[in-house]
Computed example of a mutant assay.
Amino acid sequence: MKFLFDLFPVILFFIAYKFSDIYTATLVVIGATFFQVIYSKLVHKRVDKLLIFNAVLISVLGGTTLWLHDANFIKWKPSILYWLLSCALLFFQFFKRKNLVKNLMGKQIQLTEKTWYQINITSALFFGVLGALNLYVAFNFSESTWVNFKLFGITGLIMCYAIFIGVLASRANRK
């Protein structure tokens, strides 16, 4: 259910784009993201830090897109988010000696430190590549193709990656 909640703004962005244009879709995604923040605060009594960061990022880049009437800013948003996530995973691993993936998932699954390290580094690389791939599609294909990729391509890649991590964790637990 959380997965659908996380996808809610992207789905609305996609629908708004298909019925209107990139600027309407940008306005819709800003509103949907703020709805997520308010809903989380009211229902869960807390707002995830990544959601807050995403809301700020979508407000700044989406707002700039609307203000300057330049879709390039909104196209950069996923890449910046993924690259900052990648950097955070690496920074905390190497400079703070904290594994963020383990901190997020460590209560659900028990793995060796080596496996947590592998998953953390692999996740950092995955998000780094995903950010680059987003820009490649955004600036080498049509706007419509990028919007489709944003919903279906990125979501599909993240789901495949989650399955890969599940298999990696499963194999590590069998050893």
Rank of each mutant, 00 (worst) to 15 (best):
S79A: 15
K98H: 14
P78M: 07
W116A: 12
G131W: 09
V10E: 03
K150I: 00
L90K: 06
F94P: 04
W83R: 10
T64S: 05
F13S: 07
K98L: 13
L125Y: 04
W83G: 09
Y82L: 13
W83Q: 09
L133R: 03
T26A: 05
N148S: 13
K107I: 04
F92L: 04
I15A: 12
F34I: 15
G131E: 09
A162I: 09
V167Y: 12
E143N: 12
W146R: 08
R171L: 15
N148I: 08
G62A: 06
V43S: 03
A88P: 09
F91R: 05
L61Q: 06
L81A: 11
T64K: 01
K77L: 15
K107W: 07
P9H: 14
D21E: 03
L157M: 14
V137N: 09
W67M: 11
M159Q: 00
A25E: 00
K102A: 15
N99A: 04
N140T: 13
L89C: 04
K98W: 05
T112V: 15
L100Y: 01
Q36C: 12
D6E: 15
R46S: 13
K45M: 02
I165F: 00
A138R: 05
F95P: 00
T115E: 03
F92P: 02
T65R: 10
A162H: 06
L104G: 09
L50R: 02
L66K: 04
K49T: 02
V28W: 03
V129A: 13
Q110C: 10
F13L: 12
S20L: 02
F73L: 05
L90H: 03
K45W: 02
F152L: 12
V101S: 01
T64L: 15
L7G: 06
I38Q: 05
